[in-house]
């Protein structure tokens, strides 16, 4: 564990807390893509199949359980909570996310570290996480306006990815055999998807104005 990895995990956790806060405090999920949230739930369940087979640390197990539980809770709220579900921007959230699931799984069957069920699901979760933000970014682009908490949610999610890249650079320089091509290449792709959002986020922050994305 290095400082970048910890910062990455903490900003990831923070992003989820911000999202839960938004849903809980405003009883609204407007501006949030349910498809992206469903993809994250699939990502965590597929990746943490090792929860019962490999013990790494209490921290590791705790975080895995938190990520699985929170992502399922968010999806549950958006689908079934009587008030929250009414605010869902159904007509804006039309990205064909099943294509992302299919393409990620096909890629995992081709590119993986070992041909075992657990390793294929692990690779699948890495590929799917890389593109899972796309429905969310498309929804924001369509609605144009981004409320503060939604903007902060995506900002922290992007920060988490940026810290993970610094973590890999640090590990590459300090650990003799650190080569994780699948995770690192997918991670760079994932972070690049946030570049556009970050650009507009910083402009609005600099001008102290409301975050708006161009149509």
């Amino acid at each position: 564990m290095n400082i970048f990895r910890l910062a990455g995990d903490m900003t990831h956790l923070l992003s989820i807390l911000v999202l839960l806060l938004k849903i809980y405090a405003t009883k609204s999920c407007s501006g949030i893509s349910r498809k992206t949230q469903e993809l994250y739930a699939i990502v965590f369940v597929a990746r943490y199949l090792d929860l019962f087979t490999d013990f790494i640390s209490v921290y590791n197990t705790f975080m895995k359980v938190v990520f699985i539980a929170s992502s399922l809770a968010i999806v549950w709220c958006m689908r079934f909570h009587p008030m929250v579900r009414r605010s869902y921007d159904r007509e804006l959230d039309t990205f064909r996310h099943y294509f992302l699931v299919g393409a990620s799984f096909a890629l995992a069957l081709i590119l993986h570290e070992k041909f075992t069920v657990q390793e294929i699901f692990w690779a699948f979760s890495i590929y799917l996480e890389a593109v899972a933000i796309l429905p969310q970014l498309v929804l924001l682009q369509r609605s144009g306006n981004v409320d503060n908490l939604t903007g902060q949610y995506i900002f922290f999610l992007g920060a988490y990815r940026a810290f993970y890249i610094l973590n890999w650079i640090y590990r590459y320089l300090t650990e003799p055999h650190f080569t994780r091509w699948i995770a690192c290449v997918s991670g760079v792709v994932q972070t690049a998807l946030y570049a556009d959002f970050f650009y507009y986020y910083f402009i609005s922050w600099k001008n102290n104005s409301k975050l708006k994305l161009p149509a």
């Binding site: 790494i56 640390s57 570290e113």
Partner: peptide
């Protein structure tokens, strides 16, 4: 490269 190391990252 060693791919056998446990997946310690989240």
């Amino acid at each position: 490269g060693d791919v056998d190391d446990a997946k310690d990252e989240l």
